[in-house]
């Protein structure tokens, strides 16, 4: 495992809901992330897919140390990532960056692009002397496909795609090893989305950055990821190399998820595999397998025994009693 840039084991994040004092019930717990292992080999992209409420965003925030996990360990760049605190953590943050869904929200409306990027450089003493500063920022902007004139502008003067390019410039300014992309292209228009996806893969080729690409959009993940993990209600239910996962999904949830994605080709074969029902809530999970209430393959054992992640082939694991083969 020496080649892993990031390895998280047994990550758990539970939220305790406030108990109503007049009700005699035990405190309810939201199991947002409920025992997840993630490995990101250096220079690769791991895709993390799932529907809303499956815990994928929380997982990203745990890795970014924006939230403290309830349990679990994270090793990042060979070091105990959760042991870092205070100034030590702040300095180490330069290696792990983030790109969020909402580019406008992730830029301070009262700061110019130059201030935003300059601040990131200054935080890690990477700011060149006064004269070189504008050049450095222009160079960063160029590397994300923006002209130097953007530096003087405020976020509300830019288009959605330009804003996301600015947040990417801020991230790569500190020369990170790893970027968590949380729905990084989901809010963008279709034509712009493709530009940003291309930019992300170009940057990976040029700088050797690893990505955790969190998205509800499976097609985007297929395009970018080397490995894909599928989350359902706080757990990873399947993980496989991207090609294999999309060609031969094993978990019934993955199968249904893939079938549900509409394809921009009316002639494409349609697999009728619609799931019934809604996502269960993460507060009171069913016994056994979390997916069994919506699962077309559910049997008696599924209600009794929670299936562990088991290897089906090399690098392909699924948590199901009756996986598709």
């Amino acid at each position: 495992m020496a080649s892993d840039l990031l390895a998280a084991t047994g990550l758990v994040r539970h939220y305790r809901l406030r108990r109503r004092w007049w009700r005699a019930e035990p405190p309810r717990i939201v199991r947002a992330v409920d025992g997840v292992n993630v490995r990101v080999p250096a220079g690769t992209t791991v895709g993390l897919v799932g529907e809303s409420g499956c815990g994928k965003t929380t997982l990203g925030r745990l890795l970014l140390r924006l939230e403290q996990p309830t349990a679990g360990e994270i090793t990042f760049a060979g070091q105990d990532w959760l042991a870092k605190r205070g100034e030590q953590l702040r300095e180490a943050r330069k290696d792990m960056q983030a790109i969020f869904q909402d580019p406008l929200g992730s830029l301070d409306p009262r700061a110019t692009v130059a201030q935003v990027i300059g601040e990131a450089l200054a935080a890690h003493g990477m700011e060149p002397a006064k004269s070189g500063r504008a050049d450095k920022i222009a160079e960063l902007l160029r590397s994300v496909g923006l002209g130097p004139d953007v530096a003087r502008r405020y976020p509300n003067e830019l288009s959605g795609g330009q804003r996301q390019r600015v947040t990417i410039a801020r991230s790569i300014a500190v020369q990170p090893k790893f970027i968590v992309c949380d729905e990084a292209v989901s809010a963008l228009d279709v034509s712009v989305q493709a530009q940003i996806i291309n930019l992300l893969s170009d940057l990976q080729d040029a700088l050797g950055i690893s990505y955790l690409f969190i998205s509800h959009n499976l097609a985007t993940v297929r395009h970018l990821a080397d490995t894909v993990a599928v989350m359902y209600l706080g757990k990873v239910v399947e993980r496989a190399p991207a090609g294999e996962l999309f060609a031969a999904p094993a978990h019934p949830y993955t199968v249904a998820l893939l079938a549900a994605v509409p394809v921009p080709d009316p002639a494409a074969p349609r697999i009728e595999q619609n799931l019934s029902g809604d996502l269960h809530s993460a507060t009171d999970l069913p016994s056994g397998c979390r997916f069994r209430l919506r699962c077309p393959r559910a049997a008696e054992i599924c209600a009794q025994v929670e299936p562990p992640l088991e290897a089906l082939s090399d690098g392909h694991v699924a948590a199901c009693h009756f996986p598709h083969r």
Partner: peptide, 8 residues
Amino acid sequence: AAATVVGV
């Protein structure tokens, strides 16, 4: 959050 992550 973005500024925190970047190490400000």
